[in-house]
Every structure is written in structure tokens, then in C-alpha cells.
């Protein structure tokens, strides 16, 4: 029969949830941390980012396109000239915002779990107001898609040997494909093609834009999937190029003989 119990939760972390609500922010926070540490070490401090040709048969996607003017000092990694764009695109991405607000800012750590902050101002104040720059980074990300596909296609060609295929070619192609899916699933791009319209039926061009919106919506519905798979594959591809270029592993490919 009746027994007295505790009052409604009022402190950080208080919740009546009985599931493992802490697991998702823990996994997401750990995954993002691992990637940030790896990409910093690999892109900024690492060596062996290209393999085989002048511009690399396999060029790590962290360095694509290769910008390496001679006036820069040796310690300056060309990746620094590239990585600001994907970092900015992902940092302001609506999916990643959900992920790191929950995992790192605990705002909230999970639904219906009390957050620690005593006050909350949202995205209307500095520095979070900078999230509005996502549209800018989206335009830059659109430029990177053909650049990454160019790198992928280039990896199927070896000077003096001609067309072939190696494991690195496959990884670079999958990387370009997943980054394409991540980009066309972007909320900002989806809005940009037709989301701001209210009357799609008025002209044929508007109907075409509506069709594009529908296609991008299919990718957008799985934005989290594309965000994670494209993040993982770009790290794996970079690691693979490092390992091949530093001769730790040998790339299985058709140029060296039958695979």
C-alpha cells in the first residue's frame, strides 16, 4: 500500500528515466573526441599524406586539394589550408549541433534529464550565434564535392601504367560518395533548393526545385547516418594513405600484379 517517496527532480542529472540515457551522449562524445584528436595529429602534425605521384596517386582527403606553396615553412601542414572548411561545415551542422550540445554541453545530456547550467541563452548569443554561418560553409562544401571526386577518379590512374584499381582507390571513392550523401542531406542545402518557397506549382522551374527538395529530403532523413559514415570513412581513408605511404602496409592493386 501507500509508501512515501522522493520529490520531483530538481538537480542536475535528476530524472525518473530507467533506461541507459547516458549511453548515447557517452558514445557520441567519445566518437567525436577520438576523431578530433586523430585528425589533429594526422592532418597537422603527421607526415606521409600522399602516395606515389607528384600530387599523390592516393592523396589523403585531409589534404585534397593539395595546396603547398613554396613560401610556406616546412612545419606548416597543407591540411591547415583545407581542414577549416569541413570542420566549419560539420561544427555548424544541425546534426552535429544536436550531438555535441548533448554530449559536451549537457544541454540537455538526454531528453527529460535535468541539465547542469543555471541559465540558458540558446543560439542567439556569441559564440553560438555563429551557427548561422552554416550556409556559408555549405557553399564551400559544395565546392569540395567535385574536388574529392576528382581525387577519387585520379586514384584509378597511375602515370606510365594507365588505368587500374587498388584498395586505396576504393576507399577514396567510397569517401567521396559518402561525403556527397552527407552534403546533399544537409538541412541548409535542402532548404536552399526549394524550402523557402511556398508555391511550388507556379512555374516549371519551381516544380523542378520541389522535385530536387524531395530528393534531398530522402538523404536528409538519414543525415545522422551520413554524418557518421562520412566521418569514419574520411578518417579510415586518411589512416590508410598514411600506412601505405609510410610503407607499413602494401596497397593491393592491379598495377603491382594480380590482386
Amino acid at each position: 500500500m501507500a509508501q512515501a517517496s522522493t520529490a520531483l527532480e530538481r538537480r542536475y542529472g535528476d530524472t525518473q528515466r530507467t533506461d541507459r540515457w547516458w549511453l548515447e551522449p557517452l558514445l557520441v562524445g567519445s566518437g567525436l573526441l577520438i576523431f578530433v584528436v586523430y585528425s589533429t595529429v594526422s592532418g597537422v602534425l603527421g607526415e606521409y599524406w600522399a602516395f606515389e605521384t607528384e600530387h599523390g596517386l592516393y592523396l589523403s582527403p585531409f589534404f585534397e586539394p593539395l595546396i603547398h606553396p613554396e613560401f610556406l615553412p616546412d612545419w606548416f601542414s597543407p591540411a591547415i589550408l583545407i581542414l577549416w572548411a569541413p570542420i566549419g561545415f560539420r561544427t555548424t551542422c544541425y546534426y552535429y549541433r544536436r550531438a555535441y550540445y548533448r554530449a559536451y554541453f549537457l544541454s540537455p545530456p538526454a531528453c527529460a534529464v535535468r541539465e547542469p547550467a543555471g541559465s540558458y541563452s540558446g543560439e542567439g548569443v556569441f559564440p553560438f550565434v555563429l551557427q548561422n554561418a552554416h550556409r556559408w560553409f555549405m557553399y564551400v562544401a559544395l565546392l569540395f564535392i567535385p574536388i574529392l571526386w576528382n581525387g577519387a577518379i585520379r586514384s584509378f590512374w597511375l602515370d606510365g601504367e594507365g588505368i587500374g584499381i587498388g584498395l586505396g582507390s576504393v576507399l577514396l571513392t567510397v569517401n567521396a560518395a559518402l561525403l556527397t550523401m552527407y552534403t546533399i542531406g544537409c538541412h541548409s542545402l535542402r532548404h536552399w533548393v526549394a524550402g523557402g518557397l511556398n508555391q511550388f506549382s507556379r512555374t516549371p522551374l519551381r516544380r523542378l526545385r520541389r522535385r530536387l527538395w524531395e530528393i534531398f529530403t530522402i538523404a536528409n532523413e538519414h543525415h545522422r547516418l551520413w554524418a557518421w559514415t562520412s566521418l569514419i570513412i574520411v578518417g579510415v581513408t586518411d589512416l590508410y594513405v598514411h600506412l601505405v605511404a609510410s610503407e607499413v602496409v602494401t596497397d593491393p592493386n592491379t598495377w603491382s600484379g594480380p590482386i
Binding site: 550540445y101 544541454s107 527529460a112
Partner: peptide, 13 residues
């Protein structure tokens, strides 16, 4: 107050 929303998607969930 649209700016207050930080896209954590609990409403959708």
C-alpha cells in the same frame, strides 16, 4: 524565441 532552440530534437523524439 526561435534562437533558444539548440536542435537537440527531444520534441521530435
Amino acid at each position: 524565441g526561435l534562437d533558444y532552440c539548440n536542435i537537440t530534437k527531444c520534441c521530435t523524439d
